[in-house]
Computed example of a mutant assay.
Amino acid sequence: MLEAGHPCGDCAARCRAICSVLENDELKTFRKSGATMRLAAGETLFYEGDPARSVYSLARGTLRLTKMLPDGRRQIADFLFPGDFLGLTLEEGHSFSAEAVTPVEICRFSSARFEAFAAIHPQLERRLYALAAHELAAARQQVLRLGRKSAAERIASFLLMLAGREQDSGSTTKSNAREVFLPMSRTDIGDYLGLRIETISRELSAMKAQKLIRLASTQRIEILDLERLEDITAGETNVPGCVCA
Rank of each mutant, 00 (worst) to 15 (best):
G5F: 07
H6G: 02
C11M: 12
A12E: 11
A12G: 06
A13D: 06
R14Y: 05
V21F: 06
L22P: 12
N24R: 05
N24C: 09
D25F: 03
K28M: 05
T29V: 02
F30M: 04
K32Y: 08
R38G: 07
L39S: 08
A40C: 13
Y47A: 07
Y47H: 13
E48W: 09
G49Y: 14
Y56K: 04
S57F: 11
R60N: 11
L65N: 01
L65D: 01
K67S: 04
D71T: 04
G72Y: 15
G72R: 14
R74K: 14
A77Q: 11
D78Q: 08
F79Q: 01
F81K: 00
P82V: 00
L86M: 13
L88S: 06
L88G: 02
L90A: 00
L90T: 03
E91P: 00
S97H: 03
A98S: 06
E99V: 15
P103Y: 09
V104T: 06
V104Q: 06
R108T: 04
F109N: 03
F109G: 00
S111R: 08
A112K: 08
E115M: 02
E115L: 03
A116S: 09
A116Q: 12
F117G: 01
A118M: 10
I120R: 11
E125F: 04
R127H: 12
R127K: 14
Y129H: 09
L131K: 09
A132S: 13
A133I: 14
A133W: 09
A138F: 11
A138M: 06
R140Y: 04
Q141V: 03
Q142I: 01
L146K: 13
K149I: 01
A152G: 06
E153R: 12
R154I: 06
R154W: 13
A156P: 05
A156R: 04
F158W: 11
Q167Y: 07
D168K: 02
G170D: 02
G170V: 00
S171W: 11
S171A: 12
S171Q: 11
T172Q: 05
K174G: 15
K174I: 15
A177I: 05
R178L: 07
R178S: 07
F181W: 10
P183Y: 00
S185T: 14
R186L: 15
Y192D: 05
Y192E: 04
Y192R: 10
L193G: 02
L195Y: 11
I200N: 04
E203A: 13
E203T: 15
E203G: 11
L204G: 00
S205L: 12
M207P: 01
M207L: 08
M207Y: 12
K208N: 09
K211Q: 13
R214G: 07
A216I: 13
S217R: 10
R220P: 02
I221V: 08
I221Q: 02
I223T: 08
L224K: 14
L226H: 05
R228S: 04
D231H: 11
D231K: 13
D231A: 07
A234W: 01
A234G: 00
G235M: 02
E236Y: 12
E236H: 13
T237Q: 07
V239W: 14
V243F: 10
C244F: 12
A245W: 14
